[in-house]
Design a protein around this nucleic acid. Structure first.
Lengths: 280, 280
DNA sequence: CTTTGCTGTTTATGCCGTACACGGAGAAGT
DNA sequence: ACTTCTCCGTGTACGGCATAAACAGCAAAG
């Protein structure tokens, strides 16, 4: 009976997670197909990634690939995990902000090296070992904060989507510049018939004459700073709340109006903590 | 000689900006093609938008469309401007934050109505009147702040990319759910062969047992709040700087160590301002 | 010596965008 | 009235895509 492998995600899990098998001296093999596909996508983008061209690069026929990979979709999953292995491990030192920023910048570098990464779409990509390790590491940057679990997840997701969104506009402008031979600036500069009509828009005209487009902000740096600032607001907020919690019972604690800050919410908790200290 | 209209952006400008022409009683017309294309993309997504299917919807042959639209790319430009006309005008009242939030939420609603909006790629889409009006309005929400022109532009770009990124994951999960008939939750829940391997990842396991995935944050609400918080940090910072600028000459002004805050950087500026006041 | 399983190939189907040549109808020029 | 031109819709064709299905060569296992 037909295995229906192309529609079976569990087969994808197996391909992704099986330890690196033996590579035959000659002929095709899964790692070779994946590496060729990564090279091709690096050159031509995800849209330029076709089974034909991967096969051509390897010197085999198109259909030969299907002996090793269930289909194009799963091939992309495998490529993802392949390049995610390049992610450098950021240092464990520094506060959450420095570490989160470092991991975002690493992700940014990776997407410059493999522009197609940001073009991958879909919500059901089976993660491989490298993807999971990287995700776990991103989550761990926020381990020291008082953020709630769901908030840690949301923050990491948000940072990831930010990097992808920025990378996407970068890769698109680059590709169009390469394809057409005309730089973005030149192209928009040639749209006289468009600019003629923009005088009637007040804020646009104002910012234009004020030189807002002459020296634009670096989109990634600017955005990353705002993003981290926004996250920091939340982290500080949660830290304050943590400080307003009884060290012993975790219950609410009303802050002392002045002087030495309270740590216990009641004499009872204070006593319980004392007994624990003496015992252990 | 060939007109090469498909490659001529200026022809696109003309199509987008020309006032609504007469609609023939029968037969094709540009607005009819665009409307049919929007409907189709609403139903099937941008990937499902093909010239053949648009033509079928209208009861004409595929090639008939090319008499009115240069090609698929320009058709998408026209569709963009068509639906951007639906953008409601947020109220002019309230601070920059309320207005920017309102416009972001409107954009979010629009992307729920037309999910393909977030799927549009490319850096060289000629904007039509509706697109420009909307962009101008977004920029104007920050008019009251002390942000520099380039910062206003960067902030608006960032918010736009945020909304698109969030919309993109939403539309992708929805589409896969519809296509496969399996909900996202079910699908991931069935990946036992994957979850088996995730025990070795400390932060992942910790957040899992802590219930971080049981009640996830609303991705859009959470992200929008962080984003606005981050922008607010910058706005406050700039407002402080504005207060440290001479009202008369705009030059730097060292703040008074105590008492009534200075407004002029020197006696000379104070006197110039006085003379201006007296004159009229 | 046959059977089985793995690997690579060939052929074919059904999508896609769009270039190109054509046909008919109405307007404009003579 | 007759030609010419322009606009609009059609039919055919090309090259690209993913992949289903049948087939061929070879090696190990029975």
């Amino acid at each position: 009976m037909a295995r229906g492998r192309a529609d079976d995600p569990d087969h994808g899990v197996e391909l992704l997670w099986r330890a690196g098998g033996r590579e035959p001296r000659q002929g095709l093999s899964l790692p070779r197909v994946v590496r060729a596909a990564v090279e091709l996508a690096d050159d031509e983008g995800l849209a330029g990634l076709s089974m034909r061209k991967v096969a051509d690069r390897l010197g085999f026929t198109t259909m030969s690939l299907y002996r090793h990979v269930p289909g194009r979709g799963q091939l992309v999953d495998l490529m993802l995990d392949e390049v995610l292995g390049e992610h450098p491990r950021a240092p464990e030192t520094g506060g959450w902000r420095a570490r989160l920023e470092a991991v975002a910048r690493h992700a940014w570098e990776l997407r410059k090296r493999h522009p197609w990464l940001a073009e991958v779409r879909g919500s059901r990509h089976v993660p491989g070992p490298n993807a999971v390790a990287h995700y776990d590491y991103m989550l761990s940057t926020l381990a020291g904060t008082a953020l709630r679990p769901s908030e840690v997840i949301a923050v990491v997701g948000m940072v990831g989507r930010f990097v992808d969104a920025e990378a996407l506009v970068l890769v698109e402008t680059r590709r169009e510049e390469r394809r057409s031979g005309v730089s973005e600036e030149e192209w928009w500069g040639s749209r006289d018939s468009l600019f003629e009509r923009l005088d009637r828009y007040p804020m646009l005209s104002h910012l234009w004459t004020a030189g807002g487009w002459d020296q634009p902000e670096d989109s990634f740096d600017f955005g990353l700073r705002r993003l981290l600032d926004g996250i920091e607001v939340l982290v500080r907020q949660r830290d304050e709340i943590r400080d307003e919690i009884c060290t012993e019972c975790g219950g609410p604690l009303e802050p002392a109006p002045s002087g030495r800050p309270r740590v216990y919410c009641s004499r009872a908790c204070q006593q319980r903590a004392y007994r624990k200290r003496r015992k252990g």
